[in-house]
Every structure is written in structure tokens, then in C-alpha cells.
């Protein structure tokens, strides 16, 4: 079946391995870009930098949780329909780890916008940098996590869609390829959902829990070393960027608003104190 943009491609089997190396059939397949970000580990103790505008970078990092689900979903779609999964990140050299892990899990290639300065870009400019870095590509779908665990702006994917002129849908819990486009399941507030039909290409922001994450296999980790990783320097995309439209003036530990009573002692003492509170103050015993 011809795909919308009539790209030439290779038939693939269920595991997206090419069946006919030189075939020039036109097929329904999905070329998916996944935006991924490296963020401080959930339990990492955070310290402020000297100017009090960002954290000190000497913490341990991990992949932003919903981005891991976005990657997994892309890999599953590729396994179903054939195609290609490309992962992209913006950040310093350390962020390459996220791409390496994605390649080990089955992504086909990676794009690294490598510069420490990318960390400080607002969502508008991050999306512009991505748009500039992929201008010679033609994706059917772009997935991002629905928000990042560090900034939590929940904007980069939607902004990217607007910059590309594509439709988008957010907080996605299911994706189904249809003859014309896709049907997605959006999560709404308070346990509600909604199906939305939309054409391709499109941007989807993925919610954690949409699927079950896989682990990288040893073979995968080995193969990842030979997969292509394209580096994009700040200078390559600079002309597409502007000054940030918003600025973090200061970062700080939030003030407590409640009078919290901390109970201390051994576990046995704490248990006794808690029961005393439950009986005499909370009055539930």
C-alpha cells in the first residue's frame, strides 16, 4: 500500500529486518522520531549552582521517564508496521548515554545536538533546534514524553508540531495505525479517555504507562556500537534560534507552607508515637 508521501522503501519482516535489500516498493511503514531527554535521577540530591539559577551538574542522570515509554511505543509500532526509529536529544556529551541506551533497545540511529548550552534553552528554542536538525528528514510521526522531570514545561512536543505545521495530540495512552492516519487514545482528567483520529504526519506526546518497557539485550548493546549517531553542533542550528523568551531568575528550595511535625526515634518509638497521634489527635483509633 502506498504511503502518503510516496517514499521508496524496503519491505521488512515482523522484526523490521529488511526482506529485499534492493526492492523499491512503496509500502505503509512508519518512520518515527523520538525526542528524549536526560534528566537528574529521581532520588539524586540536588544542589544549586553558585548563581542560584540552575542545579550543579555533578549529579547522576537517567532518561526522562515518559521519554522511555515514547521510545518503547516507537519500537512497538515499528515491529508492527516496519519502518525506522530515530532518537534525538539535545544536551552535553553526557546525554549521549540516553541515545546509546535507545540504540541498544532497538532504535536504528540517533541524532545528538551536542552542546552544554542546549540545557539552558527554553522549550521554544529547543523545539526550533530539533526542527532545524531534522529539516532534511521526512518522518511520519514524532513522539516525545509528555513532559520532563526537570523543567516540567510540557511544551516541547506541541511547539515542535506547530513549527512543522503538523497536528498533534497530548497525553497519549494508545496508538493505532489506520488506513488514513492514526487513531490515538488521549488521557483526560479524572479517569476519562477519548479517541482522536488524525492524519499523518503528526506529533504525539506519550504518557508513562502506555506500554511495558523492555530491557536492552546484550546483543542489542553490542549492535548499538555500530549504529549511526549524527552529531549536530550548536553552530549548525544557531541561525534558527532566538534569545530565550523566558528566563529563570532564581531557583530555590520551596518554603514549607504547612507546620509539619517530624517524628523521630527508633522504628519502634516512631510506631508508638504514630499510634498516639492516631488515637489522640487524628482520632481514628
Amino acid at each position: 500500500m502506498p504511503s502518503a508521501n510516496g517514499r521508496q522503501l524496503i519491505y521488512t519482516d515482523a522484526f523490521a529486518r529488511p526482506l529485499l535489500e534492493t526492492a523499491s516498493y512503496v509500502e505503509l511503514f512508519l518512520k518515527i522520531l523520538v525526542g528524549m531527554k536526560q534528566v537528574p535521577q529521581k532520588d539524586a540530591p540536588l544542589k544549586l549552582n553558585e548563581s542560584g539559577t540552575w542545579i550543579r551538574e555533578d549529579v547522576s542522570y537517567e532518561v526522562n521517564e515518559p521519554d522511555a515509554y515514547a521510545l518503547e511505543e516507537a519500537l512497538r509500532q515499528k515491529e508492527k508496521h516496519g519502518g525506522e526509529v530515530v532518537v534525538i536529544t539535545a544536551g552535553p556529551a553526557r546525554a549521549q548515554q540516553v541515545l546509546r541506551e535507545a540504540l541498544a533497545k532497538g532504535a536504528d540511529r540517533a541524532i545528538h545536538l551536542e552542546d552544554t548550552a542546549f540545557v539552558g534553552l527554553d522549550a521554544f528554542n529547543t523545539a526550533r533546534a530539533f526542527a532545524a536538525a531534522i529539516q532534511d528528514e521526512s518522518f511520519d510521526l514524532i513522539f516525545t514524553g509528555l513532559q520532563s522531570d526537570d523543567y516540567g514545561y510540557a511544551q516541547t512536543g506541541v511547539i515542535l508540531a506547530e513549527l512543522l505545521g503538523w497536528p498533534h495530540a497530548t497525553i497519549i495512552m494508545q496508538i493505532e495505525k489506520k488506513d488514513a492516519g492514526i487513531r490515538v487514545k488521549r488521557e483526560l482528567e479524572a479517569g476519562y479517555f477519548q479517541f482522536v483520529d488524525m492524519p499523518l504526519p503528526a506529533v504525539l506526546t506519550i504518557q508513562s504507562g502506555i506500554n511495558k518497557l523492555r530491557y536492552a539485550t546484550l546483543i542489542g548493546i553490542k549492535q548499538a556500537k555500530n549504529k549511526p549517531l549524527r552529531k549536530v553542533a550548536m553552530a549548525d542550528v544557531q541561525s534558527s534560534l532566538s534569545g530565550n523568551l523566558q528566563k529563570i531568575e532564581r531557583l530555590y528550595v520551596p518554603q514549607k507552607t504547612k507546620n509539619t511535625e517530624f517524628l523521630e526515634g527508633s522504628a519502634a518509638e516512631i510506631a508508638k508515637k504514630l499510634v498516639d497521634k492516631l488515637r489522640n489527635e487524628v482520632r481514628v483509633l
Binding site: D149, D150, G152, L245, E249
Partner: peptide, 20 residues
């Protein structure tokens, strides 16, 4: 005008201004 928002899943807060 500064707008306060939570960062790092609520571990820190930031005061953010408009630059455009």
C-alpha cells in the same frame, strides 16, 4: 513580574520572567 513554578517534580521552585 515573576511567575513561580515547581521544578524537578516539586523538589525545587523557580521564579521565571518573560524575556520577550
Amino acid at each position: 513580574l515573576l511567575f513561580t513554578r515547581q521544578m524537578f517534580q516539586g523538589k525545587l521552585a523557580a521564579d521565571v520572567s518573560f524575556a520577550g
